[in-house]
């Protein structure tokens, strides 16, 4: 059974059709990235899955449960999910350890607090007040609070916004560790390289509809698109667009009798593909 199953999801705010018929199937253990520009319906879709918003139409099942349900069943359900929201700057007067320890009390089978501190790299900050943490450290705390309940499903909403490159790398390593525990992760992000580094599959959403669902390598026909071979010949940079980059390189190797000056072979980046996709449907 899929962890997330969505069919024909619709949501409007007045005359604005934010989500116009979204279908999604996410199996257990997958890291799934939802990509889309601001206002594409990304946040609305995720917040419906998180049980924060109601829907107008469609079927939604998250861990076999309708997120709109209320009462004790909803608590049992929340006990199995973790949510890392875009920003939470509360509880500045508590220490990191106090906060994680307190949140661990909300769940029936919490992770070990020390273990979570280590996992997010905050072990040396455990006694620090939250208001004295840097932006990146705060974000790590957000993630710690998201995973303390050992959730089966984790929602990550733009987790590395505002991170420096090094912090992003170590954050990605943390997510990779979670993948190892079998946690299903739904990631929304603005960063294409992040989706590429982490996600098993990505969905591109625009104007309230899913345009494509694919692996990052295959999105938008990326795997089969022509490669660009470029090299220096005398004073000029030459390029050739080809389906057979290897044979082009072999030919050039013969031509130059060995090393080809300034050789690059590239395929369109995920970002190139993505921008084409959302640009193409924007009109």
């Amino acid at each position: 059974m899929n962890v997330i199953e969505v069919k024909g999801l619709k949501k409007s705010y007045g005359l604005v059709h934010a989500v116009r018929g979204v279908d999604l199937s996410i199996p257990q253990g997958e890291i799934f990235a939802l990509l889309g520009p601001n206002g594409a319906g990304k946040t609305t879709t995720v917040e419906i899955l998180e049980g924060f918003r109601s829907r107008d139409a469609g079927e939604v099942s998250v861990l076999g449960f309708d997120p709109q349900t209320k009462g004790h069943a909803a608590r049992e359900w929340r006990n199995r999910i973790g949510i890392v929201l875009q920003s939470a700057a509360d509880a500045g007067d508590l220490t990191v350890l106090e906060t994680i320890d307190h949140f661990s009390g909300y769940y029936s089978k919490p992770r070990n607090v020390e273990e979570v501190l280590n996992a997010v790299g905050l072990e040396e900050k455990s006694g620090a007040l939250i208001r004295n943490l840097s932006g990146g450290q705060r974000r790590r705390l957000d993630v710690a609070l998201g995973i303390i309940g050992s959730p089966d499903l984790l929602f990550l909403d733009e987790p590395t916004t505002g991170f420096d490159p090094e912090a992003r790398r170590s954050f990605w390593a943390l997510i990779e560790k979670l993948r190892g525990t079998g946690t299903t992760i739904l990631l929304t992000t603005h960063y294409l390289d992040e989706a590429e580094a982490l996600a098993d599959r990505v969905a591109v959403i625009n104007d309230g509809l899913i345009i494509e669902v694919s692996t990052p390598a295959e999105l938008g026909g990326r795997a089969t698109s022509k490669a660009i071979v470029s090299w220096r010949d005398g004073d000029t940079i030459k390029t050739e667009s080809t389906d057979n980059p290897t044979s082009v390189v072999t030919k050039l190797t013969t031509h130059f009798g060995g090393e080809i000056p300034e050789l690059t072979v590239s395929r369109p980046s995920l970002e190139d593909i993505y921008l084409t996709m959302i640009g193409g449907t924007h009109e």
Partner: peptide
């Protein structure tokens, strides 16, 4: 104020009633 800084939304996402 707690609502403004996102603290309440985070609590709502937990099993705490």
């Amino acid at each position: 104020m707690e609502r403004d800084v996102g603290g309440l939304k985070r609590l709502r996402g937990t099993p705490m009633p």
